[in-house]
Design a protein around this nucleic acid. Structure first.
Lengths: 336, 336
DNA sequence: TTGTACGCGTTATCAA
DNA sequence: TTGATAACGCGTACAA
């Protein structure tokens, strides 16, 4: 421990501490002696001791639904990169899309003394936010942005994003739509996306009929099976399918290939996220690109600013960009 | 803090502590009083204080190259699941495939008092392992297994895996091979994979010619561009391409589609990992399936066993399984 | 620039 | 079963 280093370097414990925390306040010769002693004893400062004495833990937390989804993984990577520069390490928690688990994770992190925390989405129990507020731990909601939210959000308006993508299709003359989306239960982002689709369609007096609405796991397999069901259904077939994310859309694309459905001639397909495969697959996928790493970086910078008592002037909105590719086209026979 | 709770519950601080650490040793009535006081004050035990007093942090660490790769993300998820059951939280560090960063991360984790640590691969500076040994922190190497390794490894023999996949192709009559792999520099797993390919080919007096060997980023894009280069090259074209992972193989598959190369009639392609897309893409990809989540779970259980002074009897090997699909076939004109 | 001494929030030991 | 008290390893006023 620190005391041993002090003894070996023949200085006081305070000096050893200073060497690590305020190096300028120690004369170079003494500093050198201390560092040598430390390395001789193979000593590293103990974080628990530091935390207790300084009431600073240098730990931040991030809570995401799952690491299985690239978009959250890269958000975490972005946060880590920014926080590491400031000597802050990141505790990671996965809620598995379960608000109860999210609450448990937050409690565990508070016990660990996280100084700040980022949480994906705002659909969480009030106790979660109460706990954060009581503990005076600054937090940010990521991957979602909503005007009028009581929280500081960093992300984008999921509803507006899906209005945009729906309007794109309407503009191409589409009138019959199907939707394939991930489970909306307890997921504010997905709910907002559905609301966006509905809103855009309503403006034009349109709607997705229930039999053309598929909700299930965000996998390629579910995308496939949804298209098959839609195509075999008795209803008049849609000319466009809006998918909740790229995985689902890629599933639809692959199944279309198998069923001999021509995309985009017979059917337009859209995704969301813009994963690497979206621009590589054939036909390439029209989708909305979201810079999730930037969401992570910005969340980290915001939290650091709050901790420093600085004002954060960065925009909270990381705008998704519509990438129009081969999977969407003007509906055949529709006039420009 | 704990003292406030003690006062409110009209018990000593020791009793409050017991309620949380050895509940059986406290009478039910007192226990109830303490819990009520705690919840009234909204108190959670402070981890730094506990760590200091008990010399146990309940923290473990995991160091992976990157979160951008699904296989590492799911290993982390597997570890978390097992550790969470024991109230242990996980610190995550990404080395970005840089051994120096790995060392830095390990040091940071030791300072944080991690009780155990899992590290992907064994190609790390000796100081890293020295530090771990000196600190008496048990560790496990994941995602790699090698007979004769001085470390406890949990994973599979990358060399043997690629011998298997290469032999599969040789057995199908292939004699001219190309290889598309990720950067081998500082990556023992990739080096082992290359060695496996080489070894299997040598047994049959074969080798990949340098002009058919492509090393670059593990992306779909690099897979594509490698196939294009191979196909345009002046050398006699290979009949099989072995890829270092599924991303690369999917790139090759997509580019083959674009170039009008028939897979598997003209060209066989293999991958590694068995990502979700591998069985969905057309033609589906022959690859080796690795249960990375199981690697994570087993690593976690091993580390827990060491911490408990228990002997771990689980196998260190998580055997990859060859998934033969449509992308490989008997070379045309070869006899069975 | 350096040292002294106290306190951070909890657990562990021992005695009651 | 419960309580008093001394650690745990470090940072930080304050004094020198």
């Amino acid at each position: 421990m620190l005391g041993d280093v002090a003894r070996l370097a023949e200085v006081s414990t305070a000096t050893v501490s200073r060497v690590y925390n305020e190096p300028d306040k120690v004369s170079p010769s003494v500093r050198e002696r201390v560092l040598q002693a430390a390395s001789a004893l193979n000593w590293i400062p103990n974080a628990a001791g530091r935390a207790l004495a300084s009431t600073r833990t240098h730990i931040a937390g991030a809570i995401i639904p799952t690491l299985d989804d690239q978009v959250f993984a890269s958000q975490v990577a972005g946060m880590q990169a920014v926080l590491a520069e400031r000597g802050i390490t990141l505790f990671l928690g996965c809620s598995n899309y379960d608000p109860t688990q999210a609450l448990t994770q937050v409690r565990a992190m508070l016990a660990r003394g996280v100084e700040a925390i980022a949480i994906v989405g705002e659909a969480h129990p009030p106790e979660l936010f109460d706990a954060l507020t009581q503990a005076r731990v600054p937090y940010a909601i990521t991957y979602a942005y909503r005007d009028g939210s009581p929280h500081h959000c960093i992300g984008f308006d999921n509803r507006a994003a899906f209005v945009e993508i729906t309007e794109h299709l309407i503009g191409l003359g589409h009138r019959r739509f199907a939707a394939v989306i991930q489970p909306a239960q307890g997921n504010d982002r997905v709910q907002a996306r559905m609301a966006g689709i509905r809103e855009a369609l309503e403006r034009h007096g349109l709607a997705v009929r229930p039999s053309h609405m598929y909700e299930g796991p965000a996998t390629i397999a579910f995308g496939r099976q949804s298209l098959r069901a839609i195509w075999q259904g008795s209803e008049k077939r849609p000319t466009a399918i809006i998918c909740g994310n790229d995985q689902l859309a890629i599933g639809v694309l692959l199944e279309a290939g198998e069923l001999g459905i021509k995309v985009p001639q017979q059917l337009s397909v859209t995704g969301f996220d813009d994963v690497a495969l979206a621009q590589e697959i054939h036909p390439s996928l029209t989708t909305l690109r979201v810079d999730t790493a930037e969401i992570g970086r910005r969340a980290a910078r915001y939290l650091l600013d709050v901790l420093d008592g600085r004002e954060n002037v960065e925009s909270c909105v990381v705008q998704p960009v519509l990438k129009i590719r081969e999977s969407t086209a003007r509906v055949s026979g529709s006039k420009k």
